[in-house]
Design a protein around this nucleic acid. Structure first.
Lengths: 120, 120
DNA sequence: CTAACGTGTAAGCAACTTCTTACGCATAAG
DNA sequence: CTTATGCGTAAGAAGTTGCTTACACGTTAG
């Protein structure tokens, strides 16, 4: 069967609360697999498999450090998904002015040009 | 057994190329179910089931119009997913922006968690 | 009325997910 | 060396997904 397209891989990687929590937790600092596994009420292999899904989506990298493996985030892999969602917004922008309130604090930064101010 | 959380419902609804195409196609112009089904090489019940998934994610509304059912988007349902994705990126940039502070200060307090403090 | 159309639901099936336990392998420690 | 630790993979159970065909139900046409 044909391999899944990248966007589907990304979205289905994010369609699990444990994996989203891993991403959010790694957002602050890299962690080893066992340090991550302590945070969840499932077995360590289950966490390892979640990490494999995130790695397949290019969201997480694992670096061997002696006996330990340090997991770190590759947040650029979220860009295509974010871009797809923003693409949907473009056509809706007349009806979505309330989104500015919803997102303004997180999206509007001088470092990004992704969100142009809409006509007011 | 426990019901899925809203974010997981949204992301897994988007984790399918047919459903993303339906969302993109419905963007701006409502369509009937059969008009949608003509666009894909699968049976009409399959499209109907995809619509049910999108409806369960509050992304699509079906309105009976006589014999036909018109499908339209409920774009606000994408807000939480967009917000989550942007949150990840913002925190990543905050990390990079704070890196200089982090390296130049010997003591680390949680007082500098604001976005306003990040100018070069 | 009867027939055709637009649609949803039911049942079934193959493929995929998400967990488990058991095991293998490498590194570190005694 | 021998043992413990960190981690991955294998195999299997249980549930979910994505399709199919068959059918039911309401609406429109003749």
């Amino acid at each position: 069967m044909p391999p899944k397209d990248p966007l589907s891989i990304t979205f289905s990687a994010l369609a699990d609360p444990t994996r989203r929590d891993i991403v959010a937790r790694l957002r602050g600092k890299p962690m080893t697999v066992s340090a991550l596994a302590e945070k969840y009420s499932m077995s360590r292999p289950a966490v390892s498999q979640h990490l494999a899904v995130l790695e397949r989506a290019s969201l997480v990298e694992r670096d061997r450090r002696g006996q330990w493996i340090e997991c770190s985030l590759s947040p650029a892999a979220l860009d295509p998904a974010t871009e797809w969602l923003n693409q949907q917004r473009v056509t809706w922008n007349e009806r979505l002015d309330h989104l500015d309130d919803y997102l303004s604090r997180s999206t509007l930064s001088e470092n990004h040009r992704t969100q142009e101010g809409r006509k007011s």
